[in-house]
Design a protein around this nucleic acid. Structure first.
Lengths: 341, 341
DNA sequence: ATGAAAGCGCTAACAT
DNA sequence: ATGTTAGCGCTTTCAT
């Protein structure tokens, strides 16, 4: 049998209430008894039973984390890092994160995540694009929900977002400062708010530098921002336009595809073409040349989300907050000063 | 407030015990009352409180899943798929999986996963290579532990393993049947049991076909089986040996690296060189040509592990089992009949 | 076949 | 400052 609060109380010569007060720091206990209790707890290696605690406090001590399976299994560890961030942070607050995946084509007939049905979480974190009908069905459960890197159609939810516009500006400014004028933008689906915002930043930066916007330098018709689509987009870009000297892609996966295209077609990076990505994923460090990119602090997105939801849980009132997490330019090897041919 | 067992009992006109018996199927209840209770449960949308249940049953209803962070964040979603498998299976048994990562250089001073310290799991699943000292410290906690895709130095743990030898035979046989004679093997660290076993299968297949083993066709000196090391290994292979007509790499990540090397050096796949990988990860489907490989049923590794640990939990006796999960040859486009140049 | 009641380990109101 | 005690929602033994 496991050690319980009674064992500690008996051994320390106090009541179980006192022990409880000590473990919760909830009432003023004389330093002397407090220390004695603490010592006993340690000596007995006592850990309060989570279920007993949860039962009386009417909390579950769990936060649900929902990811579509394609995000969960993405080749670049992006969302898994965000999960890790929440998990790190949860360690301090005695919470556990329950990770589950749903199908990306989640529909009416699919079951909601079990932890929702069984009410075994106090709140829900959702990362990345998620089917709308899931959100609607979730709202019946009266659980605090917050979104990371996704703007749901319905308002009122707290949001943790990447400062994509700023990132777009940062990336484009970098290329402009290197002397580039013919700067292309390659993005995936323009319907994604993050792609749109990054493109937006690109446009703002060009405008500020008085560089005219050319539509045939913008390729945003790929369905999904992965390597393959990066490759194809680059192919389409160069089919229309030979004198591109720099490319800003909406994420690193596409940048890697673009890099392959450039290599396959005899372009040297960065001598002939400068290339900058967005996200800063592991894979960038295995490339040759190393990819210059905009770093998205993935772990921090997770920790921010966790902190926010815990605050929500404490204050009960649903303060609709929007946290914009800043990004950072990481200069590596794939960008260089513009040299006319 | 939430619906409790009392509400159900009152509405159904029975005692709470009866409701409990129904939800647990634990005693014979007349079909009539049973149906009535069931209907009431549904109408009230009642879900038993997990904490209350756990408290009395002295179970936590949780299984811990430990992964080193480099495995967790691997570029190819291999271990995350295994986790998903356990999670899928856990849904049927009313268990939840608590996923946590530890650093791959976990040492004496690092804290054990919180769910171990707090005794909030009933058992532990560990996937992939894990630091030995963690295993040792874990053993103090008297929790059932099972390993997936890793053979710990200490015996007695139930193991879920991939049938690597069979996979090696399958892959090599495939190449042999295509008429290849100069078949290379590229692996990562030979210290890994799985690499060793796959190499073993390779050797067995060659021997059976009376093809002499050539040591300069075997490259197993890379520290980690990733793309970059695949690339480098291929480079070393061709430096020693020009007339290789087929390559079997110990995993797909390395195969992708090899593929890049071959392309960079003007080899056509599969016309000049046939290539087969191992694992069958998403990325294979984005390659050109599509990669022939040995499929490891990742989801199944997870479900098997979960089933095994639940059995362990039920029977209490630690049956030291070893489950060998079979693999499958997936022929795609990167292998072809041998044609002399 | 069903019900009454004890008790799992803990928190928190109330008492001292 | 510390102790007593009533539950939290559930399972399970023992009655009936």
């Amino acid at each position: 049998m496991s050690i319980t609060i009674k064992d500690v109380a008996k051994k320390a010569g106090v009541s179980i209430a006192t022990v409880s007060f000590v473990t919760n720091n909830s009432k003023h206990i004389s330093t002397e008894t407090k220390n004695r209790v603490l010592k006993t707890i340690k000596s007995l290696n006592y850990h309060p039973s989570k279920s007993a605690r949860d039962l009386v406090s009417k909390k579950t001590g769990f936060i649900g984390f929902i990811l579509t399976d394609d995000h969960f299994l993405r080749t670049e560890p992006f969302y898994t890092r965000i999960f890790l961030g929440t998990e790190f942070e949860a360690r301090n607050d005695d919470y556990y994160i329950l990770l589950t995946s749903i199908r990306s084509d989640f529909n009416e007939n699919d079951q909601l995540p079990r932890f929702v049905l069984n009410k075994s979480v106090d709140g829900i974190i959702i990362a990345g694009k998620i089917p709308i009908n899931l959100i609607e069905r979730l709202s019946d459960y009266n659980l605090p929900i917050i979104f990371i890197d996704f703007i749901p159609p319905s308002n009122g939810y707290p949001l943790i977002l990447i400062d994509n516009i700023q990132g777009g500006i940062l990336a484009t400014d970098h290329l402009i400062h290197l002397g580039h004028k013919n700067i292309a933008f390659i993005g995936g689906d323009i319907e994604h708010t993050s792609v749109r915002d990054r493109l937006n930043g690109y446009k703002q930066a060009l405008e500020k530098a008085n560089i005219p916007l050319k539509n045939n330098l913008i390729i945003v018709d790929a369905p999904y921002p992965d390597r393959q689509n990066g490759y194809n987009s680059a192919k389409r870009l160069f089919a229309k336009n030979k004198n591109v000297s720099a490319i800003f892609t909406c994420n690193d996966a596409m940048a890697i595809g673009v890099m392959h295209y450039l290599k396959d077609n005899g372009y040297d990076i960065p001598r002939d073409v400068s290339l900058i990505g967005f996200d800063d994923v592991e894979a960038d460090l295995m490339l040759n040349p190393l990819l210059t990119t905009i770093r998205v602090p993935k772990i921090e997105l997770g920790t921010e989300a966790f902190r926010l939801i815990v605050n929500l849980l404490k204050n009960k009132k649903s303060i609709s907050k929007k946290i914009l997490v800043p990004v950072e330019l990481i200069v590596r090897e794939s960008t260089a000063i513009y040299k006319p041919k």
